[in-house]
Design a protein around this nucleic acid. Structure first.
Lengths: 132, 132
DNA sequence: CTATCTGCAAACGTTTTGCATCTGT
DNA sequence: ACAGATGCAAAACGTTTGCAGATAG
């Protein structure tokens, strides 16, 4: 609650519901998932409010927009730099907090100044390996 | 043309136009970009045909679906494993053919069997650095 | 000849927008 | 009090689908 105040945005009940849903959430939800979850407590919640809030949080740099699902945006309230490993069978996603130093070839460093990187690992999780 | 035959799909003029557009293309186009390009030579081309052809090629494993743009699918006819570096200013994308060995922590290797990985590097390109 | 593809149009899923009303600060 | 948020509905995108007619092999 105190940390929410640091966002310097109007803390409406709807926004608090969204923030509380996202806080500590490791599911990397889409806008629709968020909408469905917060609608339970807030029957009048609209998509516009969800998208508007996500947009505001994005601009504040307090959430990350993920591209782990083609054609659909997903969100992560955890902005600590991290990568993801995704099960190609069940789509389970696990966070990986590790800062890798990856050397770029000279052709690239000549052309680009590196700022950031994002790694997606793909594999099969224990559960799915078992069920094969 | 001979390599197209290896796909074992019906080589209609529309599909050939799409394949020719994609072949050697380094722009990682979206369906719409492809549609616009091939419509020039093929005024009756429809989106259905573009999507249908992309779907067919995906199933054959001859193209890759990219998630470099949130909320929109993009495609790459180049299936040689590679990563991308993207300019955060102008969105220029450059391919990076390098196979990195990235060690995963034990918590992860216990839970996942690694199959593949994909790295997106972000930075600013020469051009955009200059214009700042 | 026939299994498959094309093109149209309609439907679908996701995201954005306009606007009148409401509310946190 | 008022800048800015909400909720509704419509629109704007991107993608998928059904189907009648066309065509590659």
């Amino acid at each position: 609650m105190e940390t929410y105040r640091l966002l310097k945005i109007k803390l409406t009940p709807q926004r608090l519901a969204i923030l509380n849903y996202l806080n500590g959430n490791k599911s990397h939800p889409s806008a629709e998932t968020i909408y469905k979850a917060v609608s339970q407590q807030f029957p009048t919640m609209s998509f516009a409010t969800v998208y508007n809030t996500l947009e505001t949080l994005l601009n504040k740099g307090s959430i990350r927009e993920l591209k782990i699902e083609a054609g659909k945006k997903r969100y992560d309230y955890d902005i600590k730099p991290h990568h993801h490993i995704i099960c190609i069978e069940c789509n389970k996603i696990v966070d990986l907090y590790k800062d890798y130093k990856i050397p770029l070839p000279e052709e690239i460093t000549q052309e680009f100044e590196l700022i950031n990187k994002n790694i997606e690992f793909y594999g099969t999780c224990q559960n799915c390996k078992k069920n094969n």
